[in-house]
Amino acid sequence: MSKINLTCIECPIGCNIEVEMVDGKPVSITGNSCPRGKLYAENEVVCPKRVVTSTVRATNGVLVPVKTDKPIKKSEMFEVMKKINQTTCKLPVKIGDILVENISDDANLVATGNA
């Protein structure tokens, strides 16, 4: 059995979560103060995922803020950044517009600002 200590990133409280692992699987999660924290810890010890936020340059030069609409594998972050920086879009763009479908891991790249 091994123990993994995590800082939860789900909200500004930042709970210290302790996960007990047996055979590479979480068997006990303590320290979280909400269900989101438990879910975060379960995923974090198996396959850490993050929402990536960045910008996409529109054809007129304006930057459009974007995010992946789901967390993507942490190990894929730089690969996704590469794809984001190769993407352009035409204005107008509205919050929620999909700029790249399935950029990674079933997640779409969506606009988070109106431009």
Binding site: T53, T55, P65, T112, G113
Partner: peptide
């Protein structure tokens, strides 16, 4: 502030600054 994490208290979801 294009990163996410805004609005968890108010809207119960994680928004970017522009959102």
């Amino acid at each position: 502030c294009i990163h996410n994490g805004f609005g968890l208290t108010r809207f119960k979801e994680s928004l970017s600054g522009p959102e």
